[in-house]
Design a protein around this nucleic acid. Structure first.
Length: 232
DNA sequence: GCATTAATTGGTC
DNA sequence: GACCAATTAATGC
């Protein structure tokens, strides 16, 4: 398996893989597998490089007081992890755990730095990516500050739907109530309560870990006043 | 099938 | 709206 034939067309490396100047860099790629539940990036651990998800799902988080997790983002095929680690410091500012068995590609910091300094097209794509990430991050700050718990849960469900999609009426990712809470910025009990209400209102359906969105428009409508500019 | 973990519900501050 | 406790459902081994 090499980058030129990789199915992840959204991957930054893949986009630039056909360039001549990329070939040496591409040969330095490592690939390995992590199993579900594996905490493969530990907060505070030294940075060795950055990762791309070839196949799988990952949660990226920061741990706060009393071990409370804040999930910062979710990751799937083609996405980058650990990108804030190099350049910004020697230690990982986030942790990452596989939500299912996941295959990762990685490049060492030194290899990546060389590539970024010599291949402007690649650097530009990275810059665009950082810009999008910052936008997402700022949007999330707004949501945290201004939304009620119910709205935050709805917003989170909509985000997960956009990112992972649904098959057979259920979201393509299995998250515990606690993980939803850690992402939405509330507690698992509150998530359970909101989801129960949404079920009664026929906006979502849920059985155990499977959650499905029934009335997408209905959910969107509830948080529409918060998104006057765009539907991120 | 038992033991552990997660989901749910009710109550208090 | 968070935290705690008790009950029930689901899942791992």
């Amino acid at each position: 398996m090499d980058c030129l034939t990789c199915k992840n067309k959204n991957c930054l490396i893949n986009k630039n893989a056909s360039r001549n100047e990329m070939q040496e860099f591409l040969s330095k790629r490592h690939q390995f597998k992590v199993i579900k539940g594996q905490n493969f990036i530990i907060e505070g651990a030294p940075v060795h490089g950055l990762f791309f998800v070839f196949e799988g799902k990952v949660k990226v988080f920061k741990t706060g007081l009393n071990g409370k997790e804040q999930i910062v983002r979710f990751i799937l095929d083609g996405d980058i992890i650990g990108h804030r680690g190099f350049g910004a410091g020697e230690y990982h500012q986030i942790g990452a755990m596989a939500l299912e068995d996941t295959i990762l590609c990685s490049f060492s910091s030194a290899e990546l730095l060389t590539a970024l300094k010599t291949i402007p097209a690649l650097t530009f794509d990275f810059m665009s990516f950082y810009s999008e990430e910052l936008n997402r991050s700022e949007t999330k700050i707004k949501a945290f500050a201004q939304m009620t718990v119910r709205e935050k849960v709805i917003d989170s469900l909509l985000y997960i739907n956009r990112k992972f999609g649904q098959t057979k009426g259920y979201l393509n990712i299995q998250l515990s109530r606690k993980e939803l809470a850690d992402f939405a910025g509330t507690t698992d009990e509150q998530v359970i309560r909101v989801i129960s209400s949404l079920k009664k209102e026929k906006l979502v359906k849920a059985s155990a870990k499977k959650i499905g969105i029934v009335d997408l428009e209905g959910l969107r409508k509830e948080i529409s006043e918060h998104n006057f500019f765009l539907d991120l």
